[in-house]
Structures are given as C-alpha cells and as structure tokens.
Simulated scan of single mutants.
Amino acid sequence: MQKDQLLTRRRALLTGAAVVGAAGVTGLLTTGPGTEAARPTTPAAGAQAAGRPLKPSAYRLRPLTGYGPPRTPPGRTPVRSAPLLRVSGRGSTMVLTFDDGPDPRYTPDILDTLATYDVRAMFFVCGEMVSFNKDLLARMSDEGHVVGNHTWSHPLLTRLTRGRIRSEMERTCDIIEKGYGERPQWFRAPYGAWNRAAFQLGAELGMEPLAWTVDTLDWTSPGTRTIVDRVENGAAPGVVVLSHDAGGDRSQSVRALREYLPELLDSGYRVTVPRRHHV
C-alpha cells in the first residue's frame, strides 16, 4: 500500500472514530534534563495576544530534577488502568508530542524548528510510516528526541483481538529499535482509545502509556492561529500537548509550531521530554 493511501485511510478513521477520554492518573512522569533554548531576539507577542501571559520561570535555566512515583523493580513496568496525562518537575515544564509520523513532507520541518530552539520533543511513530522513512527516525535519535510506539498501522485497538494488538505493538517496537537504537519506553493508543489489553501488553513490552493534557485538534485543519491559541491557552506546568506530523496535510501544524514554541520559551516554559524511573 502506498504512503498516500495509508495517510488517507488514517484520516478517514480519525473522522469516524470515537475518542475514549483519558482520565485518572496525573503528574506521574518526570521530565528529562535536555538543553535549554535561547530566547528569541524579538519578544514574542503571541502569549499576550492569547490573554495568558505568564511570568518568566525562575527555573528556566536550572537543571531539572523531577518528582515522580515510587520506583518499580528492574524489568517490571506497572500495569495501569489509565494513561499518564501530565509531567511533573520543577518550574514551568511542558512536553510537546507529535503523532502518526514520520512523514517526509512535514516531520523534517518540525525537527528543524525544534533544532532552532534546541528543544527536545516526543514522536509517537507508526511502524508502517517508519518502514518508509527510517532516516527520519535516525535523525530523531541523533537530535535527542524521544520516540514512542503508536502501533504499526494506527488501528482502533478496542476493535482488535489481543493477538492483533500485540502484533501491532511488537512489530513497531522492533522497527523502532532498528532505526532509533533502542526499544521504545512509551506507548500511545491511536485515537486515545485504550483498553485493558493495551495497558497489559504495553507493560509486558516495557512501555508506559502516555496520553495528553492539551489536544490541538490540528488534524481537523482549524487554521494555524487556532492551533497556536489552543496551545497558549492550555499552557500550564506539567502539560502534555498533542499535535501531529503525519496523517494528512500537516502544514498548519508546522507553521503553528514556529509561532508558539518561541512564545512558550519567552513566557518561561521549559519544553523538554519525560524520563522513566529506573532502579
């Protein structure tokens, strides 16, 4: 199946799928150190335009040491009943996540913008897309981004058998390991549709489930300004932002990141990636 057909099929699924609302567990991740970005030369006005300017964070240039849940024994990942929704850490920490890629039309531009500000992000990739774009996965690894498992073909997991869910996860873990250099430690269910099998199998494969706090709904192509406003209005310490770098026309997502990222940094946010606890 060609890439354009895969993307069209995935966009059609997005339109009809019922998104299962994530609820419950919050503040159970810690964020990794990462390198801080330089402030833009021109003060950003977007945060003020959105009516939500924040005072600069005193922790912006300090090393990050987070607080999290009790550590689990080596080699054992807890089986959760709800996905993680937020991150914890000192100061105004946030995490940017991008789903469904990598896509050679949009992912490189997103990586370029992140590199401009020396910011790390999370990419929840589909194995099917990785098979066409292994070079982009290698670039994510080289530039310090975190790669998570978003299944092989982006199906609605609640409609699959346990064996099919395992296959979707395992195949993606394998191809990520080959292209990224290590197996993924994070998993996100397509459409946010989680079930018990997804939590259990994800834990068996050593992955924590991560959802999001702020959904930009960029897949609906609401306009660049709307995406920017949603990120700025939802910005708060611990927030995890959901955007997309594939699955359709993501040019608005690319342009929006160029606007809101420097504005977040100028408002004092520390944009970083989560870190797993290990004994």
Rank of each mutant, 00 (worst) to 15 (best):
147 V>Q: 02
62 R>Y: 12
154 H>Y: 13
23 A>Y: 13
38 A>P: 00
77 T>S: 05
117 Y>P: 05
55 K>F: 07
35 T>C: 05
231 V>N: 01
11 R>M: 06
122 M>D: 02
66 G>L: 11
197 A>P: 00
227 I>W: 02
38 A>K: 01
181 G>C: 00
173 C>A: 06
37 A>T: 03
179 G>Q: 05
138 A>N: 04
119 V>A: 08
114 L>A: 09
274 P>F: 01
156 L>P: 05
21 G>K: 12
247 G>N: 02
162 R>G: 07
166 R>E: 12
38 A>Q: 01
10 R>K: 11
254 V>L: 11
210 L>C: 06
22 A>N: 09
230 R>K: 13
34 G>E: 02
48 Q>G: 15
19 V>S: 09
267 S>F: 08
197 A>T: 09
256 A>T: 11
62 R>G: 07
4 D>V: 13
227 I>Q: 02
48 Q>W: 15
145 H>K: 12
267 S>V: 05
126 C>F: 01
226 T>H: 10
176 I>E: 02
195 N>W: 13
145 H>S: 10
243 S>Y: 02
57 S>F: 09
133 N>C: 07
184 P>D: 03
103 D>R: 00
31 T>D: 04
26 T>Y: 07
139 R>H: 07
241 V>L: 11
41 T>V: 01
218 D>W: 07
181 G>N: 02
8 T>E: 15
94 M>G: 05
9 R>W: 12
97 T>H: 03
251 S>C: 09
249 D>S: 04
60 R>I: 10
37 A>Q: 00
174 D>S: 01
240 V>L: 08
172 T>W: 03
75 G>F: 07
63 P>G: 09
5 Q>M: 14
213 T>A: 03
160 L>D: 10
128 E>D: 14
5 Q>G: 14
140 M>E: 06
1 M>I: 14
189 A>Q: 01
242 L>Y: 02
151 T>W: 04
195 N>A: 08
176 I>N: 00
11 R>N: 12
267 S>Q: 15
193 A>G: 07
74 P>W: 13
92 S>I: 03
33 P>F: 00
124 F>C: 06
141 S>H: 12
169 M>F: 13
55 K>Y: 09
19 V>E: 10
247 G>C: 03
265 L>K: 03
164 R>I: 06
172 T>G: 04
170 E>Y: 13
183 R>N: 00
91 G>A: 15
21 G>C: 08
256 A>V: 09
42 T>E: 01
24 G>C: 09
135 D>W: 11
269 Y>V: 04
259 E>R: 15
234 G>R: 10
73 P>W: 14
104 P>N: 08
43 P>V: 05
228 V>T: 15
35 T>H: 05
262 P>N: 08
114 L>D: 01
25 V>Y: 08
155 P>A: 14
261 L>F: 09
164 R>G: 06
203 A>Y: 01
99 D>E: 08
237 P>Y: 08
63 P>T: 11
4 D>C: 11
245 D>Y: 01
124 F>K: 02
261 L>M: 08
155 P>T: 14
21 G>E: 14
6 L>V: 14
156 L>E: 11
173 C>D: 12
215 D>G: 05
